[in-house]
Design a protein around this nucleic acid. Sequence first.
RNA 1: GGUCUCUUGGCCGAGUGGCUAGGCAGUGGUCUGCAAAACCAUCUACGGCGGUUCGAAUCCGCCAGAGACCUCCA
Length: 490
Amino acid sequence: MQDKLLIYNTLSRKKEQFKPLNPPHVGLYVCGPTVYGDAHLGHARPAITFDLVFRYLKHLGYKVRYVRNITDVGHLVNDADEGEDKIAKKARLEQLEPMEVVQFFTDRYHKNMEDLNTLKPSIEPRASGHIIEQMELIDKILENGFAYESDGSIYFDVEAFSKKFDYGKLSGRKIEELMANTRELEGQSEKKNSFDFALWKKATPEHIMRWPSKWSDGFPGWHLECSAMSQKYLGGEFDIHGGGLDLQFPHHECEIAQSTAAYGHEAVHYWMHNNMITINGQKMGKSLGNFITLDQLFGGDNDVLEQAYSPMTVRFFILQAHYRSPLDFSNDALKAAEKGFNRLMAAIKTLNKIQTSNESTVDVKALQEKCYEALNDDINTPILIAHLFDGVKSINSLADGKEKITAEDLEQLKKLYTEFTFDILGLKEEGESEGSDELLGKVVELLLNTRMEAKKNKDWATADRIRDELTQMGIVVKDTKDGFDWEVAN
RNA sequence: GGUCUCUUGGCCGAGUGGCUAGGCAGUGGUCUGCAAAACCAUCUACGGCGGUUCGAAUCCGCCAGAGACCUCCA
């Protein structure tokens, strides 16, 4: 099964067979968030996409080391290596120590990720904890002649690099075009070329996040951390590097340049990029201010939201699109995802009510093969989900007695749904009485049991009264074949 | 302006040179004291114009529209 996995490699713009460097080990590095604000819907996409890659590779039997960093230094507010550090700016505005900002938003990010049921990375390094490693990397690049010092700052010499290597291969850019097209920006006199990027920045007096170095008191450039930390934890060469499509240039291009300049060869074998989440057809982003944070989404607390959407609804929404396609946010789409997700979960519960037979009219093995085929084709989750929904029809038919299944096949079917839905897609049941109010649950059940008795006695007045009054309190009552079901309305 | 990508039914979204993805909504039905839910069935679309081909929504060209990157962004 392992050798059938195809992954789209941004470097080659093709689907390639996935061959790890040192099987069964796989190294996976993903660019994590810059923790100066709450995570929004856009952040959920890479987190879920690469959580899926992580889960699937593990399912296939690989031993995966998944590294996802926390950017807590070096990411500047403005362009062209000028301007304030994002973290420092937030700290100044909130009158906090920068690391307080970092801690606060890191904790919130973790909470969001936990809600979305993403697995924790194997290692979650912070940029500020790897200043030494970044300095060492700068030294190597300087030694090899691909960087220069300018008034205490170190810049990567793109022109020198491109004489020997291909700068722009990932994003499909050419150095001549960059020369011709890069806008002239102010305050760049320190750089030889406007497209050179900072490896080390000398700190201005008011800059609070600073470290001593032989060049100046300063801080590392943003692109450097990923090169340094991936190298440290995954080695000079590793399998997969992931991130959002918007990081392709310049961030990932610069990473390639740095690693190549330092070690003479590229570090990454497979580059994977998830596409963007859009809202009204436009990218959801901090700079546009059109983002919806995950907390808002889960709480329904944003003007564009018609209701709250649970974490699993959001996860399912994202999984219903292929990771390389743009995905447009809308209330209708989220509501559709919510219903679809519930249908899938209901069918999985139904699996436990199926009577077995001495023959099968459903082909579990074929379904399983289709599911693997979908994932092996560049992690095609929408196709996988379509197959799972085909299976839902079979499950419902089985429960109705229209189809038959042997005990052995039923076990396989259950296993299939457990593996693909829970283990790989990372979906999970969201409890009806969410909010964990056990007492409420007991009271409601008592009332509904009373209602069942009333129904049995054809005392419709009492039965309806209980139902109506519960409805008024926001508890939805649903009669089922053999009893009742209830949930707290959103 | 440069580079690249996309345009699928009411909505969201896959995919493929010929074999009706899937979900949601709608419609019809089953079930039910009623209601809701659930389940079953159904709805056959690929921006426009040319070209290649026995055959194109799928390949090529042109046109129109949208987006991404080129500056921080997942």
